[in-house]
Amino acid sequence: MSSRIRLAHFLPAIALTLGLLAAGCSTDASSTTAAAEAPAAPAASAATETTISITDPWFKAADKGMTAAFGTLVNNTDKPLTIVSATSDVSTMELHEMTMKDGKMVMQPKEGGFVLPAKGKHELSPGGDHLMFMELKSPVQAGDEVTFTLKLADGSTVPFTAVAKPYSGAEESYAPDGGMTMSSGSASK
């Protein structure tokens, strides 16, 4: 009988020890889960730090030839970023700017790319900086979606999709040498 009494005294101690071990395992498991999740948060914020977003992206619908994409590029990082090129399946592309030369507004490739200041914006608009589609491979009608990819100076890329819209603009005429003349009419969307 004395061995039964001793066993009765040890059972609560054994149960308590097993309970603590189980609790310790649960704590370790949740710590392991939390530790496994912890690295994901910095990775997500790191992705945010290198992200450029675009507000109201759109593409000028066209049957052939040249056309352009517009919108507002937003730098979501704490450092300046430079867009050095753009690509698309629908056409070869160039970064373009509008500038005055010899009293005329002309379009030309943007030397050095588009620089987005830290936490800043860069407007792409008709009559200003824009993403130029040089020779469309097929017509892009109003409502079509056009995907293009921006390449940054650090080698990273950012894809975007823009919706094609009808736009008569300032009735610009693209010259084969890359020049552009504009009529005296005003631009309207």
Rank of each mutant, 00 (worst) to 15 (best):
L7Q: 09
D63R: 06
A69L: 13
S30E: 14
A23I: 13
V84Y: 04
L21I: 12
S85I: 03
E49G: 14
G65N: 01
T67E: 01
T77R: 09
A34N: 09
M66T: 15
A44G: 04
D63L: 09
D63M: 05
C25S: 12
I14V: 11
A8G: 08
T72A: 10
A61C: 08
G71W: 05
K60G: 02
T51N: 10
L7N: 08
V74R: 11
A23M: 14
S85Y: 03
P80G: 04
K60R: 14
S53K: 05
A29S: 08
S85D: 05
A69N: 06
I52T: 04
E37T: 14
S45L: 14
T51Y: 06
A62R: 12
T77I: 00
L11S: 03
A15W: 00
A8E: 07
A8K: 05
D28Y: 14
A8P: 02
T87V: 07
D28S: 12
T87M: 06
A13Q: 08
G24R: 01
F10S: 04
S45F: 11
N75H: 06
D56H: 11
K60A: 13
L20M: 06
E37V: 15
L16P: 00
I52H: 01
A36V: 06
H9R: 13
T87G: 07
D56T: 12
C25M: 14
A23T: 14
A61S: 15
F10N: 04
A23V: 14
T27G: 13
A35F: 07
G65T: 01
F70Y: 15
T32M: 11
L18T: 01
T55R: 13
P57F: 04
A41Y: 14
A36K: 13
E49N: 13
T33K: 13
S26M: 12
I83R: 03
K64G: 07
V74A: 09
I52V: 12
T55L: 11
L18S: 02
L21T: 09
S30K: 12
L16I: 04
G19N: 05
T33L: 15
T51F: 09
A62M: 06
S26A: 14
L73M: 07
A29C: 05
N76R: 08
T33A: 15
L16Q: 02
D63N: 10
P12V: 00
S45K: 10
A29D: 12
A38C: 03
A36R: 14
T50Y: 05
A22F: 05
A69Q: 07
N75D: 04
L16E: 01
G71N: 04
S26V: 12
A29N: 07
G19D: 00
G19K: 00
C25N: 13
A47L: 09
G65A: 01
T67Y: 02
P42L: 07
A69D: 07
A23C: 13
D63Q: 11
S53P: 00
P39I: 04
A36F: 09
L20W: 04
A22I: 03
A68H: 11
A46S: 09
T72S: 11
I52C: 02
A68N: 08
V84C: 06
L11C: 03
T50G: 15
K60C: 03
A35T: 10
G24S: 01
P39R: 03
S26H: 13
M66W: 10
P42A: 10
